[in-house]
Amino acid sequence: MFKNLLLAIDGSDHSQRAGQKAIELAILEGKGKVEILYVVDGSKSKSDVLQYGDSDSASRKRKKMIAPYEDMMTKASVDFTTTILHGSNGAAESIIDHANNGNYDALVIGSRGLSGVQTMVLGSVSHKVMKHVKAPVLMVK
């Protein structure tokens, strides 16, 4: 049933918990695989480059941010891969495209991300994902 899982993360506490649930789901059936997905959208690129100096340093910081999730998977001995998507037109759209183009049994995502202000202005990523992803979505509070 839940063999092929997609875990969309953004480094928030919510997505940390989503990571744990993804592991539980993967273990439930035994031998489930998890793909960790992190989306760097346009405005994220801008603020990251400004904050960390250049693209290389920004990439390093992102790898550091993803490392705890990978550790979590390794500790639970769950098979995983990591995907970082760049340059997209909004995080939600990228997650939706990626989820709908791949063959996933479920998408696991945190209920709320890092950007509170953005949520008010543009509508939340999780909300859009819930609406448009075809696979079952597990939203973790």
Binding site: V40, S45, K46, V49, D54, S55, S59, H86, G87
Partner: peptide, 8 residues
């Protein structure tokens, strides 16, 4: 640099 990052 920003475009570098966006296009990886």
């Amino acid at each position: 640099s920003i475009v570098d990052d966006m296009t990886d």
